[in-house]
Design a protein around this nucleic acid. Structure first.
Lengths: 125, 125
DNA sequence: TTCTTTGCAAAGCGTTTGCACTAGA
DNA sequence: TCTAGTGCAAACGCTTTGCAAAGAA
């Protein structure tokens, strides 16, 4: 099925491109609702899934309760503050070589990994 | 509140100590039910939480849909097969130093990380 | 007895889905 | 026109919780 333009989807993408927060679907919903008061949470979820599938945004899973979304699709790492529960970007060297370390004694094939860091952010210290 | 003995909790712990699978709460429930047919899923969840809190078992989150549990509390890494969805232990060197790498340019304090690997296991290749 | 744990069922939370309607191409 | 996207509400999967009854100390 071909993808058609939708102003709601555009607004969601736009929003994610201009924030450095890593908002949840619900937060995105609350924000988009200011411009499109009738948008439904279901539409937000459907569009987030679509944008993740097309590679236009990234989904960050396994941090907190709910998934976060990120308009920055460059490979980077995330940090979760255990006090304020904000998700921050980490400016750090690549650790892609951990795949190789994992592969050494493994009979199958390690293709990738998910990492995230946690601790206390500067504002909460 | 003091912790009192419970045969159900003992059975859950026992079960986790003797399996190398990384079962979900539901799988544990199904298995314990063979010995305790009246046990409820709520009891399984309550005991799993209690055992995680006391450090007797480990919870593995963010792999699949549901959390997995592990009776092996030694620091080790996990692998999720994207075909059969089994979770396997990885026999690999420590990568604890990634915390330090993450800390280098970070204004807050990185205390820990969650990593898991994915790919195809030997049986699915 | 006293306080913890249980079984049950209901509720919670985040996310997905069916459907009739709307809107993009 | 034709098909994809929307809003709404219901349903989903996993987990937690309130409560009265049962069990451990």
């Amino acid at each position: 099925m071909a993808i058609k333009y939708s102003r709601q989807r555009e607004a969601i993408k736009e929003y994610l491109m201009h924030t450095k927060d890593h908002p949840t679907a619900d937060t995105i919903y609350m924000n988009i609702r200011e411009e499109y008061p009738n948008i439904s949470l279901g539409t937000v979820y459907r569009n987030l899934n679509l944008l993740v599938d097309t590679g236009e945004i990234i989904r960050i899973s396994g941090m907190d309760g709910s998934d976060r979304y990120d308009g920055n699709i460059e490979r980077h790492y995330h940090f979760l503050c255990r006090k304020c529960h904000r998700v921050l970007d980490l400016d750090m060297d690549s650790i892609e070589q951990i795949n190789e370390i994992a592969n050494r004694n493994f009979p199958g094939k390690v293709e990738g990994h998910v990492v995230h860091f946690y601790g206390v952010c500067d504002e909460c210290m």
